[in-house]
Design a protein around this nucleic acid. Structure first.
Length: 584
RNA sequence: GGGGCUGUAGCUCAGUCGGUUAGAGUGCCGGUCUGUCACACCGGAGGUCGCGAGUUCGAGUCUCGUCAGCCCCGCCA
């Protein structure tokens, strides 16, 4: 491993192999930077220590060729050391050099000068073998390996058993679109790739594997984002005879040891907020607590303000909420408008604001405020208030987006660099466009005190679900599950499923629950996302060796492709007229 | 499904108001050079301006369509 050579290795005979990262030909002397995944070392060739045939052969050696070098580690001459490089005190004096493999001129450079831009991502993905040679990606994948290893070690230490669950599974109504795989044996029938091993792991609990985990590949056929890939990896965990507290303690312990591997702070225990508190104080179920800025309820403080927008929203049952930015009056109109743009993108018709100065208050809302109103709102001279009025369902996401944007625009000081948080007690049901949907998934055990509300007031039923949040990103999500088949049926019925549909879709789960199911629960954590955040990568694509593009294509291998008529025939499939002419 | 940005040499980019032969750096090829490390210096090759229509005397430049990549909304835990 060439990157580990140091002055203490002076005089060591060795044979090194790797790629030619860079070459500097001085005529009589030739320097090659030799690279492997451990780093770089300078190989020097000169007539006094390199044999004649190798000197001649070396003339043909170019960038990214694979070479084998035999020689000795030597201290560099005084004055020729390179302090910017780990191996800079030494060089490898080649006695012989042999090219093992010639590389065509690289389509994209592996070497980058300090100020060079990265090649376009399309090219990086198309020529992934070259791109993956870059030290950043090598480092990302190496950290990913160490994190996965630590997951397995930690879970093993805590008595968890890794069990593999099927990749060819049954289509589930879990929300996202399934990837379907046609059955050759049963024409007209399809497997689905798993969106998660949720049902299998619950069945493993019924089977008595009371502590399970899996590094599980999952699939969702939905449109992509920078932080969303069609196939992704979850740390899937489930345990029996436990309560919420057990899971939170295990998992925060896991995260602390993963963070330790990555050199990131994760002081235990992690702070907690209930979902209701998080929504009230931050407008979000995954607030970024690196900075301190909380939403305020100014409904009462503005009760006397004669401003149409506010009055009409409050009369309709809404509230007046917002954020107070101390010293925020220094923000320019342009900066405030950029925050308002974010608010609008989050669904707000507009954003009200008020600046307080020595002369009073100004701004679209400010001009309606009396000094007593500003006092009631807690506004001090120099403060800026950003305000939204309306129902919480509208203002919460708006103000959450405003809060994040303010942190950037107003350069709010970070009170910590690594903000861990548990959000607990998610509701079982959320109302969306007048319809009830499961807030996590329909297997979440309702809070014991709220069981009577399931049919009468479902939106108020608290669940035993929790999310793990890191710097405003959801790392994972879990709950205690329903282990009573009758309760499971009740919860599903409220979602609008008929008994027939329930049997059809969840029959095998309900059957298993009837076989003597232990109380159980668990969590699923997004492995890719954890690695992304721990490495500081902008995109999930930088922590996955062979990712898909936003159009769900693999550019390196060229997936997906059309298939021939014979393959379709064997599967009992025929293409529709609008696609039949394309491709093979 | 919708919106936005980008596409010019192998790579990263510049290209004025629509005007003569489309440039730079780097890489590549050839040459000089015994301590370089973004080696230096000299010379050279390299272009379907993503693709297709249209406007125009004339299009890298303007218009429309289309393809690809990226970002966002919808969707998705």
């Amino acid at each position: 491993m060439v990157g580990g050579l140091r002055a203490s290795d002076d005089g060591t005979e060795a044979t090194l192999a790797g790629w030619v990262h860079r070459r500097r030909d001085l005529g009589g002397l030739l320097f090659l930077d030799l690279r492997d995944r451990s780093g770089l070392v300078q190989v020097s060739l000169g007539p006094e220590w390199t044999d004649e045939a190798s000197m001649a052969h070396a003339q043909e050696i170019g960038h990214e060729d694979v070479i084998l070098v035999e020689g000795v580690v030597a201290l560099r001459p005084e004055g020729n050391r390179n302090a910017d490089r780990a191996t800079g005190d030494v060089e490898f004096r080649a006695r012989t050099v042999r090219r093992l493999s010639k590389a065509r001129t690289p389509e994209i450079p592996v070497y980058r000068a300090p100020e060079d831009e990265l090649p376009a991502e399309e090219l990086r993905l198309r020529h992934r073998a070259l791109d993956l040679r870059r030290s950043e990606l090598q480092r990302n994948l190496a950290l990913r390996h160490r994190l996965v290893l630590e997951v397995r070690n930690y879970m093993d230490r805590h008595g968890f058993l890794e069990v593999e669950t099927p990749i060819l599974t049954k289509a589930t109504p879990e929300g996202a679109r399934d990837y379907l795989v046609p059955s050759r044996v049963h024409h007209g029938e399809f497997y689905a790739l798993p969106q998660s091993p949720q049902l299998y792991k619950q069945i493993l609990m019924v089977a008595g594997f009371d502590r399970y985990f899996q590094i599980a590949r999952c699939f969702r056929d939905e449109d992509l984002r920078a932080d969303r890939q069609p196939e992704f990896t979850q740390i899937d965990v489930e345990a029996s005879f436990i309560d919420v507290e057990d899971i939170l303690v295990w998992i925060q312990g896991l995260m602390a040891s993963l963070a330790d591997v990555a050199g990131i702070d994760a002081p235990l225990p992690f702070p907690r907020l209930t979902w209701a508190e998080a929504m009230e104080r931050y407008g979000s179920d995954r607030p970024d607590l690196r900075f301190e800025l909380e939403l305020e309820d100014w409904t009462d403080a503005t009760a006397g303000v004669d401003f149409g927008i506010i009055r009409s929203q409050v009369d309709a049952g809404g509230r007046v909420r917002g954020v107070r930015i101390p010293d925020g009056a220094r923000l320019s109109r342009r900066q405030i408008e950029s925050i308002e743009a974010v608010a609008k993108a989050a669904g707000a018709p507009g954003l009200l604001w008020a600046k307080r100065s020595e002369d009073g208050t100004s701004g679209p809302l400010g001009k309606f405020l009396e000094p007593t109103d500003a006092d009631a709102m807690g506004l001090e001279v120099g403060d800026l208030a950003l305000v939204a009025a309306g129902p919480d369902a509208l203002t919460s996401p708006v103000l959450a987006a405003v809060r994040d944007e303010v942190a950037v625009v107003a350069e709010l000081p970070r009170v910590r660099e690594h903000a861990w948080l548990w959000v607990t007690d998610f509701p079982v049901y959320l109302e969306e466009d007048g319809e009830l949907v499961a807030s996590h998934h329909p297997f979440v055990m309702p809070h014991v005190d709220d069981l009577d509300l399931i049919e009468t007031d479902p939106a108020r039923v608290r669940g035993t679900a929790y999310d793990l949040v890191y710097n405003g990103t959801e790392f994972g999500s879990g709950s205690i599950r329903i282990h009573d088949p009758e309760l499971q049926r009740r919860v599903l019925r409220v979602l609008g499923l008929t008994d027939t549909e329930i049997e059809e879709k969840f029959g095998f789960l309900l059957g298993a629950l009837s076989a003597g199911a232990p109380p159980h629960g668990g969590i699923a954590l997004g492995m890719d996302r954890i690695v992304q955040r721990f490495t500081g990568s902008q995109s999930l694509r930088d922590v996955i060796a062979f990712p898909k593009t936003t159009a769900a294509r693999g550019l390196f291998e060229g997936a997906p492709t059309s298939v021939g008529a014979a393959e379709l025939e064997a599967l009992g499939l025929r293409l529709g007229p609008d696609v039949a002419g394309r491709g093979a």
